Computed example of a mutant assay.
Amino acid sequence: MEIAENAALVVVDVQKGFEYEFWGRRNNPDAEENIAALIDLWQETGRPVVFVRHDSVQEGSPLRPGTEGNDFKDFVEERRGKGGGPELLVRKSVNSAFYGEPSLDVWLKGARIGEVVIVGIQTNMCNETTARMGGNLGYDVVFPLDAMHTFDLAGPFGWSATAEELTRATAVSLHGGRFARVVTTEDVLKGAAAG
């Protein structure tokens, strides 16, 4: 696979609040290392990077503005502003990065960007919602599954799913439904080097 020279890396909600026990057990302990590797490559090659921050409006959320949990994790904050390419900060209070401020869609279209690579937290929540909307809006969405993580989750009827089960369901839905190409970080790193 090849990654376009102007493909945007969309780094979703990599915030300190997701380190809190509030969320429960997570999967993929390598997510942060893979996210960092992708940010580094994007910045080294002058590709655009979008940092998305969830500003929760829910009482008690660890992601509320004005709390430490709202801050980006250190490895992300240390990289912001360090790249040779364009950079954007999108603030949102819902799942999709396309419903944030400033408008991600307007920014991407203004820069004639047709491909987005989505990484971050959580796989089956904000990442999946952003990928589905991106696909619906006509973007070529790349979804490196090992550059994100999620948490075990309780649902209706006494059902629950592990983080691994949710990750698999997201991957099958997005890839099988042609919303996105579900790949690995290594695939993207090689594709970006070839692009």
Rank of each mutant, 00 (worst) to 15 (best):
R112T: 08
F75L: 05
L137T: 04
F157Y: 15
D146P: 05
L166R: 15
R181V: 15
G135Y: 10
L89G: 00
K82W: 15
W107A: 04
E128P: 03
V94D: 08
G85L: 14
G83T: 12
K109M: 03
V90D: 08
N127I: 10
L153F: 15
D105C: 07
A154V: 13
V183Y: 10
G84H: 05
G138R: 03
E128K: 15
L174H: 04
D152V: 08
Q122S: 14
K73D: 13
A97R: 08
H175L: 03
V94H: 07
P86L: 14
V106P: 00
F98P: 08
L104W: 10
A147P: 11
V183R: 05
A97I: 15
V94A: 13
L174V: 05
G155P: 00
E128G: 06
Y99G: 02
G158R: 06
V183Q: 09
K82M: 15
L137M: 09
P144Q: 03
F98I: 15
D146M: 09
E101I: 14
V182I: 14
M125S: 12
L137D: 00
S103R: 05
G81F: 13
G100T: 14
E78C: 01
S173E: 06
H149T: 07
V141D: 02
T162K: 03
T150E: 03
F143W: 11
M148R: 02
V116L: 10
G83Y: 10
V116P: 02
P86K: 15
I118K: 04
R80E: 13
R132K: 11
K92G: 06
A169P: 01
G110I: 13
N127P: 03
M133A: 13
N136C: 04
G110W: 13
G138T: 04
V76C: 10
Q122M: 12
